[in-house]
Structure formats: structure tokens, C-alpha cells
Nucleic acid binder design. Structure first.
Length: 235
RNA sequence: GAGCUAAUAAUGA
């Protein structure tokens, strides 16, 4: 069962879904990990119908999904922007009492945010115990507001996050700078940029790219050029 | 020992 699951994963990484399926079928028994591996395989290649078909089969076979299964399914719902399906998965999660798990909680927030239910996403964020909220929880919500075009809310959350002592990472900066770019608030973007000056995060390729983009979109081509010139790595 | 959550530009249809 262990090597069979690894084989599913190996085929999936190479995009050989039919081989992944064969590896799954060749196993004489399936556990939660092998079920999740085949669901993830289809999901990663945007075969969401197949992914959910296998989820149904998994339930019928009597194997209980775990936190990883739910994270994979919620990511699929987010990709599909399928709110109703996401709510069904949410119901399963509550039944399994996994809604208190931080990873599942973060995936739920991301799913609701991606599906346009930012209010629901924020409520779930508030329901997380404050000591559970991590950089991913904050970043997910910030990105959700940015996606909705609510740049000010994103900026407020960023400030609150810093005040609560949570260290933003490179993904957080990408999200918040994108928010600045989308609402064209150059001054805010500059202020965020100052957070980066002393840190090592500015060396990240993704952060450098979004700094260039933010300045360019805000109409400050000189700053964009300067940001480009100081990048340690470019693509 | 296997499955593992958040973010980012442009172009084209």
C-alpha cells in the first residue's frame, strides 16, 4: 500500500493520470492516503469531476476522509469557484470534527474567499482561536480582500497582523502589494516597501517582481525601474 | 516510510 501510493503520486507528477489510475486499481486495498492520492492526482490536473467521483467512492467504501483529503477537496472547490460544492465539503468537515484543524480551517477560508464569500471567510477566520491563526490564515484573508478589490481592508488586516506580532512572509508581501497595485495606492505601497528594506524577503524573486509591478501599475515608472535594478535575481 | 493548506506579471483565444 505504501509503495502503491508513491507510484500514484509519481505518475501524477508526470501528468500520467491513466497510469496513476492503473496503480490505484492494482492495489488490493485502499486506505485514506491512497484514496487522497488519487483524488489529488485528478485535482492537480483539473480533472475535478473524476476527483469528486473518487471522493464519492471513498465514502461508499467506508474509508473516512482526513484533514489532507479535505484540504485537497477544498482546493478543488476553490479552483472551480464552486461555492455550493464547497459548502457540502464543509458539512462533511464539520461531521468529521476537523473544522478546528488549522490547515483545514485555512483551506476553508481560502475556498470561501475564492468563491466570493469574503464575509463567510472572515467569520471563519474570527472563529479560529487567536493562538491558532498563522501566517497562512492572515495571508489567505488578505489575498481574499485583494481579490475582491477591497484594498483598504487588506491593508488594515496587514497592519493588524503586524501589530499582533505575526511575521509576514514573502507570500504575504506579494498579496498586500498586489492589493496596493489594484487600488493604485502608491503611498501605501511605498510604506509596505519600507517594511521590506531591512528584511531578507526583498531578495525573493516573487517579492521583487510584484514590487516592480506595483510601482508600474501605480504610474511610478522610476520606482519600478529602481526596484528592477536592485533585484538580485530576475526572470 | 506514501497523500499536504495561502499569493504574484504579461501575451494570445
Amino acid at each position: 500500500v505504501f509503495s502503491g501510493t508513491a507510484l500514484i503520486n509519481a505518475h501524477a507528477r508526470c501528468g500520467r493520470l491513466q497510469d496513476a489510475r492503473r496503480a490505484f486499481d492494482a492495489m488490493r486495498e485502499h486506505n485514506v492516503i491512497s484514496w487522497t492520492a488519487i483524488i489529488s492526482a485528478y485535482s492537480k490536473h483539473n480533472e475535478f469531476g473524476e476527483a469528486f467521483l473518487f471522493f464519492e467512492r471513498m465514502l461508499l467504501s467506508g474509508v473516512a476522509p482526513d484533514k489532507v483529503t479535505f484540504m485537497v477537496l477544498l482546493k478543488a472547490c476553490a479552483s472551480l469557484v464552486a461555492l455550493e460544492l464547497g459548502k457540502q465539503v464543509h458539512a462533511h468537515i464539520i461531521k468529521s470534527s476537523l473544522n478546528c484543524n488549522i490547515f483545514v480551517g485555512n483551506s476553508l477560508i481560502a475556498m470561501y474567499a475564492k468563491c466570493g464569500s469574503i464575509g463567510e471567510a472572515h467569520q471563519l477566520f474570527e472563529k479560529l482561536h487567536y493562538f491558532d491563526r498563522d501566517v497562512v490564515s492572515w495571508t489567505t484573508l488578505i489575498a481574499g480582500y485583494a481579490q475582491e478589490g477591497l484594498g483598504q481592508e487588506a491593508l488594515d488586516l496587514f497592519q493588524q497582523m503586524v501589530m499582533e506580532g505575526i511575521q509576514p512572509n514573502d507570500v504575504t508581501f506579494v498579496s498586500i502589494l498586489k492589493a496596493c497595485a489594484s487600488v493604485l495606492v502608491l503611498e501605501q505601497g511605498k510604506r509596505i516597501h519600507t517594511h521590506l528594506i531591512d528584511g531578507s524577503l526583498k531578495a525573493y524573486l516573487n517579492v521583487g517582481n510584484v514590487l516592480v509591478d506595483m510601482y508600474a501599475k501605480c504610474g511610478s515608472i522610476d520606482h519600478a525601474r529602481q526596484a528592477f535594478n536592485t533585484m538580485q535575481e530576475r526572470d
